[in-house]
Design a protein around this nucleic acid. Sequence first.
DNA 1: GCCTTGGATCGAAATCTGTCTATGTAACGT
DNA 2: ACGTTACATAGACAGATTTCGATCCAAGGC
Lengths: 116, 116
Amino acid sequence: MSPGAVADCCPGLLTAPLGEDESVELARVFKALGDPVRLRLLSMIASRDGGEVCVCDLTPAFDLAQPTISHHLKLLREAGLIASERRGTWVYYRLLPAATDRLAAILTRRSVPAGT
Amino acid sequence: MSPGAVADCCPGLLTAPLGEDESVELARVFKALGDPVRLRLLSMIASRDGGEVCVCDLTPAFDLAQPTISHHLKLLREAGLIASERRGTWVYYRLLPAATDRLAAILTRRSVPAGT
DNA sequence: GCCTTGGATCGAAATCTGTCTATGTAACGT
DNA sequence: ACGTTACATAGACAGATTTCGATCCAAGGC
């Protein structure tokens, strides 16, 4: 997919004023990213080779109680940024790239072609 | 500027685990985007031809008291997303594109070339 | 069946946010 | 100087968020 393909599909933040409903929906996703713990969780999940991380690997990486990590993962999941799957005793989380792709597109300035 | 230029400069969220300090700083910016009113304000500012909007044009667009809008603008400003300038009686806000560019880059997957 | 381990859910405490009204400040007109 | 208009700041309050300990559920081993 060419870099322009996504950029052309949606108005984005920077091109046209956002509607009320759109803004509510988008804010939910950005709010999920608005916490240092969740950002680190997301980056740990996204950057893992194989695309999956066991919760058992995430929890000990923070100085926080296990229910707290579980709570943050839930918020990321409800925002549509990650998905989880249980395999045996363990639960694995993976990034949903469509979500971050969309955010990146929304924040990307359309290069105004030439003679503005 | 080629699309890859920005993408190559920083690790991004999706490539390597975020450090603690980085995540705190980034979260502040995303948190500023995590509110529907602020998203709409930002999009109204960013999409305006000429790049500037008078606060007097922003305030009446919402069903909120004037100090509330002022407060949201302050948060966007403190997050480094917009800047303000007083000209006579009026105050004008404009987008700081470097901020949104950075976020877009951070959320962009580096296209892993060919044979992953 | 029972115990252990991984993870989610519940309920409570402390803190942070969004919003308001009231007030302050800066620039302009008369 | 005075009044008016445009914004910002201060203080208050309701509701949301973050975190915890306690508990519950699912899977596996004995």
